[in-house]
């Protein structure tokens, strides 16, 4: 029997001088992953941008559990988005989007998010 595909949802806080569009944001994330792990590595992440709030500068990404460390490392290497200096910080990680929103709603960041 096939093993269940486990996912992780990451809440991100964008720290940037500019206001990148949704496309610029996800391009930067894919760019960082492909730079570090190549296209083969990036293909294993199953990365999807679930939500992107330009006003609050927050985003929610979905990735597979087995590549969580890889995605974390890649996100940490992002220093610019759309030629503007930027940093991405993970504020929370959860197994379901509902739990993630609950964590964010409570204003808590998990120990993982630290």
């Amino acid at each position: 029997m096939l093993k269940r595909f486990k996912r992780r949802y990451l809440a991100l806080q964008l720290d940037s001088e500019g206001l990148p569009s949704r496309k610029e944001f996800i391009d930067a994330v894919w760019g960082a992953i492909t730079k570090l792990y190549g296209e083969q590595g990036a293909s294993q992440t199953s990365l999807v941008l679930i939500d992107y709030d330009l006003e609050k500068k927050t985003a929610i990404l979905r990735t597979s559990l087995i590549t969580l460390d890889l995605v974390r490392a890649s996100l940490a290497t992002i220093t610019s988005i759309a030629s503007k200096e930027a940093a991405l910080h993970i504020t929370a990680v959860s197994g379901t989007i509902k739990a993630l929103r609950k964590k964010l709603g409570n204003g808590k960041s998990t120990a993982q998010g630290n």
Partner: peptide, 21 residues
């Protein structure tokens, strides 16, 4: 300040050169 990373992100960068979590 924009080059600063959270502690857990620093640990994640350690993953790149062979440090486990």
């Amino acid at each position: 300040e924009l080059m600063l990373r959270k502690p857990r992100e620093m640990a994640a960068l350690g993953f790149l050169f062979g440090l486990d979590e």
